[in-house]
Simulated scan of single mutants.
Amino acid sequence: MHKPRRDDRRLAHRTPSAPAQGQTFRIPAAGADVVLVGYFSAKQKDFETVMASAATALAAHGAQVVARIVQRRGVSAGGAGKMALPYSSRTLLSYGKVREVARRCEETDAAAVVFTTPLTGRRRRTLTGMLGRPATSVTDVLPAR
């Protein structure tokens, strides 16, 4: 028998305001609110330093980081057992974490979501559609040095 899908599993469908393919994302305006998201394995112990340096670099380029969200993989006993399994190739995050990011974006009315990890074009499009705001990586936002 078919089970109806729970309402909380579906994110609000909105028209994404994603940048055109091939263009890099620009912070919309000076002082724009962004949510910073990091994806780290359990082996990477300096994730707080990476998040802090990304937030500092974004602030130097006119963005205001209103929330920081971290997805750690392989930290718990259950998570360590799943390390051999592939993560979500569509979103880089677990589905629950995507919902948490979407909720935080709604609460803070963020203009964009910036990931510390480089995103593929497919991930960028998927996350932009799911979150209802541009999703990009720090390397796309900040100019090359």
Rank of each mutant, 00 (worst) to 15 (best):
Y95H: 09
Y95S: 10
Y95K: 07
Y95G: 08
K97S: 03
K97V: 05
K97Y: 02
V98F: 01
V98R: 00
V98W: 00
E100G: 03
E100W: 02
V101H: 00
V101L: 04
A102D: 07
A102T: 03
A102K: 04
A102R: 03
A102Y: 06
R103K: 11
R103E: 11
R103D: 10
R103A: 13
R103S: 10
R103C: 07
R104A: 10
R104D: 04
R104P: 04
R104W: 04
C105A: 14
C105N: 08
C105E: 03
C105F: 03
E106P: 06
E106L: 11
E106C: 09
E107A: 14
E107S: 13
E107V: 13
E107G: 09
T108F: 10
T108M: 12
T108K: 12
D109P: 08
A110W: 05
A110V: 06
A110Y: 07
A110S: 14
A110I: 10
A111K: 12
A111P: 12
A112W: 02
A112S: 14
A112F: 09
V113R: 01
V113T: 07
V113S: 02
V113G: 04
V113I: 13
V113N: 01
V114I: 14
V114T: 08
V114R: 00
V114Q: 02
F115H: 04
F115N: 00
T116I: 05
T116H: 03
T116N: 03
T117H: 07
P118L: 08
P118K: 08
L119C: 06
L119K: 01
T120G: 11
G121S: 09
G121W: 04
R122V: 13
R122K: 10
R122M: 11
R123C: 13
R123M: 15
R123I: 11
R124H: 12
R124M: 12
R124E: 14
R125H: 14
R125I: 14
T126E: 15
T126K: 13
T126L: 13
T126N: 15
T126R: 14
L127S: 01
L127Y: 02
L127G: 01
L127V: 11
L127P: 05
T128I: 13
T128W: 06
T128N: 14
T128G: 14
T128A: 14
G129P: 13
G129L: 15
M130V: 05
M130C: 12
M130D: 06
M130G: 01
L131F: 09
L131Y: 06
L131Q: 07
L131K: 05
L131P: 08
L131V: 12
G132E: 05
G132F: 10
G132D: 03
G132L: 09
R133Q: 04
R133S: 02
R133C: 07
R133I: 08
R133F: 04
P134I: 00
P134M: 02
P134F: 00
A135I: 03
A135W: 00
A135P: 06
A135D: 03
A135K: 00
T136V: 12
T136I: 07
S137A: 14
S137L: 05
S137T: 05
S137E: 00
S137I: 05
V138I: 14
V138K: 01
V138Q: 07
V138H: 02
